[in-house]
Nucleic acid binder design. Structure first.
Lengths: 122, 122
DNA sequence: GCGTATAGTATGAAAAACCGTACTATGTAC
DNA sequence: GTACATAGTACGGTTTTTCATACTATACGC
């Protein structure tokens, strides 16, 4: 038996998780850093095609404050700043994996419904 | 995009997941139904102490439309409506579990930081 | 000096999420 | 008739999130 297992019926964990990586951009940022490693600010901005600079800065700051990513500033001109997952950030791998899997499963479910469910009665 | 592309570096799954169960109330509702089974509307409302009726109705409708919960209406007066997880909704168990676990881990991390990091200068 | 590239900051507007309050319908008990 | 209980709906307002646009600083090449 797990000694330290907090009550599984408590929503605390899930809520904490959603606060940390929920939202429109954070999962994207984390995925990119998780799968492609260190990235510069501009690289992220170009990859997240629709994000504004302010938004990206903001999200990166929050992720940094939550200890999920590390910001490395090179004292150069023009500026160079790199971002990568922290050690703690890398512990997201399994969760994100599970979420990804379920997400696809859900997509399949939604599609399957459209196809196989009887006459749509809404 | 392509429903077929399941590369682990795709954010599609995670985004889908967050759209389905993200937000302030859905995780709470799902947790209650997952751990305590079928509930009536009023029971949920009392358990989610701060939710408004409109919000609860709205969230339940969305969860129903996403096929995660089932709404059962009894033709009685006063009205009686029960909600429970659908079969598909129950597949959330593992993901929610993982999220919960990581959430707690993250809380520990945040607390650990406060305690063990150098002279607190805040 | 003038334009380019980078990593931002600042400001206000728009959109989305969420909340509070009042209202509906109807069978039962009083 | 009056009040109560249930599961809602309707309306408007506040709060939070996201967006668009313009601006900063500075080494380098021309």
């Amino acid at each position: 038996m797990q000694a330290d297992m907090r009550e599984p019926d408590s929503t605390q964990g899930v809520i904490t998780m959603l606060q940390a990586i929920g939202g429109k951009w954070k999962p994207l940022i984390l995925f990119i850093l998780l799968n492609e490693g260190t990235k510069r600010f501009g690289q992220l901005r170009r990859q997240l095609t629709n994000i504004t600079q302010g938004m990206l800065t903001n999200q990166l700051r929050e992720l940094e404050q939550d200890g999920l990513i590390v910001r490395r500033v090179y004292q150069e001109i023009p500026p160079k700043v790199e971002y990568e997952l922290s050690e703690h950030g890398r512990t997201l791998k399994t969760v994100l994996g599970e979420m990804c899997t379920w997400g696809y499963r859900h997509l399949d479910f939604l599609n399957g419904e459209k196809v196989s469910a009887g006459p749509s009665e809404r």
